[in-house]
Nucleic acid binder design. Structure first.
Lengths: 336, 336
DNA sequence: TTGTAAGCGTTATCAT
DNA sequence: ATGATAACGCTTACAA
């Protein structure tokens, strides 16, 4: 079964293929009537352009590569959804790859995408490898790129970030205002900028409210529920529980709550908990989990728009978009 | 900056482009030495083939379209991950689109993907529209297709399904064995085959254990946490709470637990709860949620493999793969 | 405003 | 085993 091509249309109408092409790409160098006629018969003949041919002729893939650590959690799922929406609307497609928090795999993914001639890249990098140099070089050579969430502030590339410092400062201050005296911060991975920024926000709050060093701690925990559980178990064993925990993310917070409950501590009566990067399930936990909501949709949308701006208009400023969130106070953080 | 092409390699080596092409596609019609030489110099010249040209020449996109209702929940995220892994390994790429439980959008997505000349489709259809006819026609015209999760058993197309009947029978029997006398089933949407199958499993259990009609009910609830909450609120108001609920999925189950707790009922002491399609969070709920775990990875993997088998080998049997799961009994369903 | 024709980088057919 | 050359379906100078 032969798929209609511009040649078929051209032949049928006795015009040239270039006219047909022009009609579809609506340059203003074609008479309105011929264009309409062409479009009409094209529709009649059930024509749809062959994307492969178009891509080859224009040497553009109309594909954008997206590399994220994972897309199981709500955070990246939502970001990816937003990216896809914007790209689709602009006639681009998205190829997503996961790096599983592994910087070697991340680099392989990026290279695969480049071999597949993506027109641009959106990356949420791992930061524990040395891929930065490679990325920077590519960007400077002209490859359209946007980084999201995890990127060193200092890297001169376009990025979309959440204001981790500000909102972890706010979140910590909320705990202080509730009257919690001794507050521990369960932080993520030392080498991730996001973690650093959140930790700095926490420390700033301690400083601002003149909390003595004996009354706070930063404990490197990780990003997972399991790691949250383990740390709490250890602290319980050491008889070293504070009044409140400010957690790197909701996963860790949920692990903490779980472990505390299993050991007959009540939240927030005995120990208060504050999460970060709220998930749909914060409201379902018992107690409901206080958290900071990140604008996942905005993050994805902004990143995609910045990238398209680079691809289509050649805008290449390494400017940074920093987005704000919401502090959702629920039960887990209250002083009762 | 010029990207190396087979022409460059051919010129440099004084061979023809066809030889270079042959070397890369390793047909056995090329001398081992020339092939090795070509591959070596190709690597030196930092050559990577232009996928657009290849696609045009072979009239294949090496893209596979995937249409799912959403990819926010863990279920579809995991299925998609598995699909992607298999496809990637076979040199194919995946274009994912969401239908938002809307069959019109679903059809548009499928048509978009077809216009983009995907080599095959994996669809988890909505079932409340009449897209089936369209899909069936496409399949019969030769378009490689696999359906996952939601498909009418009767449709003569290749499908990968979960054995909903069996496992909801098991899950319900577990509640009966625990000694719960009055059991309600909070079901999904009447027109989704998955829901029907689960409801049938529930009803089969009632029949098998000769439970009187006054002691069970099937209540059409939906798929969301909110709908779960609402139904429970209504039942509480009507003073019509059973001993146990068997829920369509974990979302509904979590909503149910939440609403019961908020109204001072304890789970499972006052009312037991059984979920379905377990998520990572089942273990984090208080009480931990009993549920049926689906083999999400297997579902995605099987679907992708069946599709590739159609694409590459032309195997077109409309056979069905039915997969089994695991009943994870935790706290929420026990009789205490 | 339209047509002609070259080109995009491969693969595939047919000779040799 | 290798080479010449025509496709693949579109875009885009350039010419008319």
């Amino acid at each position: 079964m032969h798929k209609t091509t511009i040649k078929d249309i051209a032949k049928k109408l006795g015009v040239s293929t270039s006219s047909v092409s022009r009609a579809f790409n609506d340059k203003h160098d074609i008479k309105k009537e011929t264009r309409d006629l062409i479009l009409r018969t094209a529709k009649e003949m059930n024509y749809s352009p062959n994307p492969m041919a178009k891509k080859l002729a224009q040497n553009k893939s109309f594909n954008v590569g997206v590399v994220v650590p994972e897309f199981i959690t709500e955070y990246y799922s939502r970001v990816i959804m937003a990216i896809q929406e914007v790209l689709y609307f602009n006639g681009y497609q998205m190829l997503v790859m996961q790096s599983n928090e592994n910087s070697e795999l991340e680099l392989n993914n990026v290279k695969t995408l480049l071999d597949n001639m993506v027109d641009g890249l959106i990356i949420s990098p791992n930061e524990d490898g040395d891929n930065q140099d490679f990325y920077l070089e590519k960007f400077e050579k002209g490859c359209p790129m946007v980084f999201i969430s995890r990127v060193k502030e200092s890297l001169p590339v376009p990025k979309v970030k959440f204001n981790n410092f500000k909102w972890s400062l706010f979140a910590t201050e909320h705990l202080i205002e509730q009257g919690h005296k001794k507050i521990y911060h369960l932080s993520g991975h030392r080498n991730i900028s996001v973690t650093k920024e959140r930790t700095n926000g926490f420390l700033r709050a301690m400083e601002k409210h003149s909390i003595e060093e004996t009354n706070y701690k930063v404990i490197e925990t990780g990003l997972s529920t399991d790691e949250g559980k383990k740390i709490i178990a250890k602290l319980i064993k050491n008889n070293d529980l504070p009044d409140a925990f400010f957690c790197e993310n909701d996963e860790v917070a949920m692990g903490a709550i779980k472990q505390l409950r299993d050991n007959k501590f009540s939240v927030p009566e005995d120990v208060a908990i504050m999460g970060f990067t709220e998930t749909r399930l914060a409201e379902l936990m018992l107690p409901e989990l206080s958290s900071v909501k990140q604008p996942t949709f905005e993050i994805g949308r902004s990143a995609a728009e910045m990238l398209l701006n680079q691809i289509k208009n050649g805008v290449r400023d390494p400017n940074t978009i920093i987005l704000d969130g919401t502090l959702n106070v629920r039960e887990s953080s209250l002083k009762i």
